Amino acid sequence: MLSRRSALTLFSASALVPTSAVAAAPREVMWDDLIPPGIPYSEIIGEGEIDEINDTWNPIYDANATKLNETLNGAYVRMPGYIIPLDFSAKGVKDFILVPYVGACIHTPPPPANQLVMVNADSYWPGNQLWDAVWVTGTMHTQLQSTELGQTGYAIVADEMEAYEW
């Protein structure tokens, strides 16, 4: 049994421990991690066809394109990518799609659903940094959603965003 003095000392010491040391570190997730184990990237693209009028390639995704890595559902993650804004204000962007490469969903057909992440952030990302690579940290969920830009397979509620340092 702890004495009153020991209990107070233990409580005081615990108050000095920074909360970041107690909080769980995010799992670093890369784009390949979004594809379920056992499914090669080459099997999520499928065939496609050339749109000669618009000079674009229209992919035909198979069922593997919407298969998600369920081990990421509810995981606290840190993931790099590029921002495709869904809304934009003078303050910047809070809701966006995180994509694996610059320009995905804008000038080219969108990547498959298991390569797109819907992000809702607690804070704004500055509008003058939209073309920069970012790290997004938060809780990830597996969730198919349709948007005007493409179908997303994942969602992150982001509590932190920072510039990606090369």
Rank of each mutant, 00 (worst) to 15 (best):
S123F: 11
S20M: 11
W125A: 14
F88I: 15
N69C: 04
N120M: 09
K67Q: 15
I44Q: 00
D159M: 03
F88S: 13
M118A: 03
P18S: 04
M79K: 01
A15Y: 03
L98E: 04
G138S: 06
P126D: 13
K94N: 09
L116A: 09
L98H: 03
D122L: 10
P112N: 03
G150H: 01
E43L: 05
I106K: 01
S89H: 10
P59L: 00
T56I: 15
I35R: 08
V17E: 01
N69F: 01
R4C: 08
D122M: 10
I53T: 15
H107E: 05
N73I: 03
S12F: 13
P100W: 01
P40L: 11
Q129F: 11
V157I: 08
R78L: 13
K67A: 12
M30H: 06
T147M: 02
P126K: 11
P40I: 08
R78H: 07
K94P: 14
G103A: 04
A13C: 09
S12E: 12
V117Q: 09
M161E: 13
N58S: 05
S14M: 14
V119R: 09
W131R: 13
K91P: 01
A65F: 03
S3P: 01
P36F: 04
E148L: 06
I83W: 06
L34H: 01
S3M: 05
G150C: 07
S89A: 14
P40V: 05
V136I: 15
S123M: 11
A21N: 07
D87T: 12
I45P: 06
A25S: 11
C105M: 12
Y124L: 12
T108Y: 02
T9I: 10
A21Y: 11
T19G: 10
Q115H: 08
A7G: 10
